[in-house]
């Protein structure tokens, strides 16, 4: 069964069109309230102090400096209203604003021939997830700082989530604390438990 899942990763990588955009929606289509969803209750969601938080950058990049939130907020941002699809089957339309990940990867001099960008998060028990480089470079893949034009609330991943509208929800990590550009497959919280690793939309 794991072998078939690996085969399905390859099939999905093959049919992935880096130029195919996830459909976008008008503001009137936004799901209200947008659901909070995690493997823990909202009360157990990370409470991150913005002043202490830094985004750590590791791996195959030229500039490994850590980024504070004010520094990240200065980067150009774009908005998207897209459908978030959960591995469970439900979906919800939300509005996310932030910096395209590909712009940031360029800025830090990431080796974009590497296979993955691996994210680590502050969720309890340690959440992490690998993102294949082609999806990381997709124009709609975003380092998200705002939901519905407001600073990202705790429920949705303050201070930063990675919004990937071409992936299932669990491949959209919240409360991100570091990213590593790497050729190694480092696994992920759900991926290791059996969810298909590519899980593309």
């Amino acid at each position: 069964m794991k072998t078939v899942s690996k085969f399905n990763d390859a099939v999905q990588d093959f049919i992935f069109n880096p130029d195919a955009l996830a459909p976008t929606f008008p503001e009137s289509a936004i799901t209200k309230p947008f659901p909070f969803n995690a493997y823990y209750d909202l009360d157990d969601a990370p409470e991150i102090d913005a002043d202490d938080w830094k985004l750590e950058v590791r791996g195959l990049v030229d500039n490994k400096k850590s980024w504070t939130l004010p520094e990240l907020y200065k980067l150009p941002q774009v908005s998207q209203i897209t459908r978030h699809i959960c591995v469970e089957g439900w979906s919800a339309i939300g509005s996310w604003t932030g910096t395209p990940l590909r712009d940031f990867l360029k800025l830090i001099g990431a080796d974009t021939r590497a296979k993955y960008v691996w994210f680590q998060c502050a969720d309890k028990d340690g959440y992490n997830s690998p993102l294949d480089m082609r999806s990381a470079l997709h124009p709609q893949t975003q380092m998200t700082f705002k939901y519905a034009n407001e600073i990202l609330p705790r429920a949705y991943g303050f201070p930063m989530k990675i919004r990937v509208p071409t992936k299932l929800g669990f491949k959209n990590p919240k409360y991100v604390i570091s990213m590593e550009v790497t050729n190694d497959y480092k696994g992920g919280y759900w991926e290791d438990q059996g969810y298909n690793s590519f899980s593309g939309s």
Binding site: M1, K2, V4, S5, N8, V87, E88, W190, Q193, G194, Y195, N196
Partner: peptide
């Protein structure tokens, strides 16, 4: 769910 998905997509 994860096991069901593996079966379904196989």
């Amino acid at each position: 769910l994860g096991g069901g998905l593996l079966w379904h997509f196989a």
